[in-house]
Nucleic acid binder design. Structure first.
Lengths: 210, 210
DNA sequence: TAGATTGTTAATCGATTAACAATC
DNA sequence: TAGATTGTTAATCGATTAACAATC
């Protein structure tokens, strides 16, 4: 029974389901049970069934889920049954790696625009995309109708650039700058900060100094 | 009243508190209330107080928290009041960016070893660290006593390399390969996959095709 | 058919929030 | 002192799990 208001924590698991299904399909599997999928993901079978049931009835009793079918449904639900153009702002080490990353294409994203404020970088290309001046950012974003940006600028610039992205119509920001950014309610932000994850894990490690 | 068993979800918030405190300190602030900290982080004041109270009494009624003091306590709790040596496995675009990333040093981590299986990369250096053959990985990890690895190899290699990392004594893995890896219970894994975050956000975007 | 597995409900579990006495 | 804010308890809220009828 599809609901209208799905908890964000459920939405956040869907991309993981999709990724695992894609992997299973690449391994030649065609059908999977909630139990198997859960084992792969470290999630309970009940939770997977409950999550999916919020969007429809995708499985078959006695059999499980048809992988190709469920993938298709999830891609539709997540709106990645199309390709989203993405901009990368800040073409340092992280920005360049994002521009070159081969993993986006199969998952619904294509890096289209690159921006940097360093004159020595402007005009150069990465993966066939010319780096533009950040002065042209708003114009270029609007012209390309881009809704998604990956932010890889220094901390001090992060909030100002964020404000400009929002002003240019960006609705989703993946922020690599290790700082919280403020955005209006209609704009979505996700954070990637490796040090946060490392520090989460060191809590559990034994430190000689203890 | 410090407890022995802290929920992992609480532990996961501590690095974010620490990061924000460091930022506030860099802005010249010396004291912060749970309310202000919460506003910055998008977390309720009550939750911050509750989380911190699991580890001790760090604040002062009527005043709030001394930033320098609370930072020190959190660094100790997270065991980043020291520097952890880290290995990067797979020196492609992501691995190189990690090797060059300046953001680790201040937060308790130093990249010490780099491994790749591509002969054309072995022997070359990044940030003063020589890339070693992956054949030497176990030996080098053990010799350096490294407990933390960042994994940036292709999907097909991820599980095999993981097994070898575990065998070599690694206890914490930050996995950039877009696949779930299996590890024994004593090994911690965190995942970074930008496409997962992007797909989480596209759920909420309006797609023309809808 | 018998066995397996879904979708869903109810029960449990855990996390967040509200409220306030204590106190700086 | 008066005002502010902590640490903590109890209440609320939400998420996960267990269980099972339905059914492929």
């Amino acid at each position: 029974m599809p609901l209208e208001n799905i908890p964000d924590i459920v939405v956040g698991r869907l991309p993981r389901y999709l990724r695992t299904l894609t992997y299973l399909e690449s391994q030649g599997k065609t059908v999977v049970s909630s139990q198997e999928l859960g084992d792969d993901l470290g999630i309970s079978a009940a939770q997977i069934r409950k999550d999916l049931s919020m969007f429809g009835e995708f499985g078959k009793q006695g059999t499980g889920y048809d992988i190709a079918f469920l993938r298709k449904q999830l891609r539709k639900i997540l709106k990645v049954n199309r390709t989203w153009d993405v901009a990368v702002v800040g073409v340092g080490d992280i920005g360049s790696a994002l521009a070159r990353y081969q993993g986006f294409a199969h998952r619904g994203f294509q890096v289209r625009l690159l921006f940097d404020n360093n004159p020595s970088k402007i005009g150069h290309s990465i993966s066939g995309i010319t780096i533009q001046s950040i002065d042209e950012m708003e114009t270029a974003l609007k012209e390309a109708g881009i809704q998604i940006a990956m932010l890889a600028v220094p901390i001090q610039a992060a909030q100002e650039i964020t404000d400009r992205l929002v002003e240019a119509g960006v609705k989703a920001i993946l922020n690599y700058a290790p700082i919280n950014i403020s955005v209006p309610p209609h704009v979505h932000v996700q954070y990637i900060d490796p040090a946060i994850h490392l520090q989460h894990m060191t809590y559990y490690l034994e430190s000689p100094e203890d």
